[in-house]
């Protein structure tokens, strides 16, 4: 059995008297996608912040390659190869693709105090990195990031993380704000990252998206892991049901589907 790249062992997190996470144990291996499902307020964001070094666990440990590690700062986490991509890509809308790709690690040419930013090289590397992920529509590194679609921005951010040696990719609701087609793009890129051997933590509340890429699923409810299962072990209805924390959501869906089936595919009229 391979050692997981990153693992949480009995992690608890509380802010003052409020317990946010209880006894979380999860692990992700290389080339595996862990889907973290949960309703709003289930503790997903706190879990991400623990993994990306924004917060530290109150008790319990985070392990990388089987060894306990601690991330006192986001920088420490990224130095360990953990990259977090947020919902809106965490990029700079009014900067060019090349400049935002190399933020903080600008390539330079020249010598001494006359080192200048190497725009051509930055643009070329950035465009190639994104195109390698299958986004061929991006071909000019001088374009502003804000001019890209939501999916392209996500892809740029993921490509950037991978380019700079990320081993663990944390995707915080990457598809939440996207249309169907854009979301498909992002899911394809998640698969590509997985193929390259990254460990991916994919946070979402869209079960369909999770099922498209996930190998392993964990459902968080009120700060605890309510279910932990592998691909194919549970159906979509069961997962939705778990996320909603009861039978209500699944039965609502079944009701609507039943109505649609018996009414030529029309949804039920709004209740008055």
């Amino acid at each position: 059995m391979t050692v997981p790249i990153i693992a949480l062992r009995g992690v608890n997190k509380s802010f003052g008297p409020i317990d946010v996470l209880h006894d979380i144990s999860l692990e992700v291996k290389a080339g595996e996608v862990l889907c973290l499902l949960g309703d709003n307020g289930a503790g997903k964001s706190t879990l991400i912040r623990l993994l990306s070094g924004v917060h530290q666990p109150t008790t319990g440990t985070i392990e990388m390659d089987g060894k306990p590690v601690s991330f006192p700062s986001p920088r420490a986490a990224s130095d360990n190869g953990i990259a977090t991509v947020h919902q809106f890509g965490g990029t700079f809308p009014l900067m060019s693709i090349g400049r935002s790709f190399f933020i903080g690690v600008e390539p330079t040419k020249g010598w001494g105090p006359f080192k200048i930013y190497d725009r051509k090289r930055a643009n070329a590397v950035a465009v190639k990195a994104v195109q390698d992920f299958g986004i061929t529509r991006i071909d000019d590194g001088d374009r502003l990031v804000g001019g890209l679609s939501g999916g392209e921005r996500q892809s740029l951010a993921i490509a950037r993380a991978v380019h700079f040696g990320a081993r663990v990719l944390i995707l915080d609701e990457p598809t939440a704000a996207l249309g169907v087609k854009q979301a498909t793009h992002v899911l394809r890129i998640v698969n590509e990252a997985k193929r390259r051997g990254l460990a991916v933590v994919f946070i979402t509340h869209q079960v369909m998206h999770a099922m498209a890429v996930g190998d392993h699923f964990a459902v968080l409810i009120r700060g605890a892991v309510a279910a932990d299962f592998k691909k194919g072990e549970k159906s979509r209805e069961e997962i939705t049901d778990l996320m909603a924390g009861g039978a209500s959501m699944a039965s609502l869906e079944a009701e609507i589907e039943g109505y649609m089936a018996s009414h030529d595919g029309h949804p039920p009229p709004p209740a008055h």
Partner: peptide, 24 residues
């Protein structure tokens, strides 16, 4: 506009948290 530092100023104005996370 030519040294790498300029990039940091634009990044800070664009998104301070992301800029900090990127090590600026």
């Amino acid at each position: 506009h030519f040294s790498p530092f300029g990039n940091w100023i634009f990044a800070m104005g664009g998104d301070k948290v992301s800029a900090r996370n990127a090590g600026i």
